[in-house]
Amino acid sequence: MAQPQAKSWNWRPASIWLLYAVGFVPAAWYFYLGATGQIPGNAVKVFEHLLGIWALRFLLATLAVTPLRDLAGFNLIRYRRALGLLAFWYVVMHFLTYMILDQNLNLSEIVKDIAERPFITIGMAALVMLVPLALTSNSWSIRRLGQRWNKLHKLSYVIVLAGATHYAMSVKVVTFEPFIYLVLAFLLVAYRPLRPRIMQWRKERRVSLSEAANR
């Protein structure tokens, strides 16, 4: 049977680049709206909060990859690095917007905020923890670090909890949105210690089902 000689075009790497491109659309679009005076009210705050929310969404998406594969058989593992890096870049943009556009580089105020206001301290800690993860997100580091890479990247659980807490603590009233982000972060992290047991149980069930079918 005749096989095609070579794949003319591999959609997989392209789809990852597409994810990056689409992932930066909210930031780019709102930056454009803000820069052209099309965000009414408090444009800088709107932009700053938008970047923070998207950072949190990408963090949650990154941590959802494993349970989605385990429980729904939906494998997005090849997109996980891109999701994590998008989260990192959104956190960086969120912080730069706060520092430059919001605080006008008033360093004494920024230092005071980070040191004295717990929700900002927590947010800053999340950004600091994201740096080593972003730096070791390349394939060379993954090979080089081996098991230590896995250990290091468990920091993402602390980061997502910190991010969701930072959001909930930043608002005047914890409404549905920050609440739901906290719940999702908690569930995604709580899944990790339960995972071996869940996988074992699913395996046993598969075995007994197939035994029943063979009987």
Binding site: G37, N42, A43, V44, K45, F47, L101
Partner: peptide, 12 residues
């Protein structure tokens, strides 16, 4: 921040 004053880059 005075709403409607300054802009995105000079929220003075």
């Amino acid at each position: 921040t005075r709403i409607g004053e300054g802009g995105f880059f000079n929220s003075a």
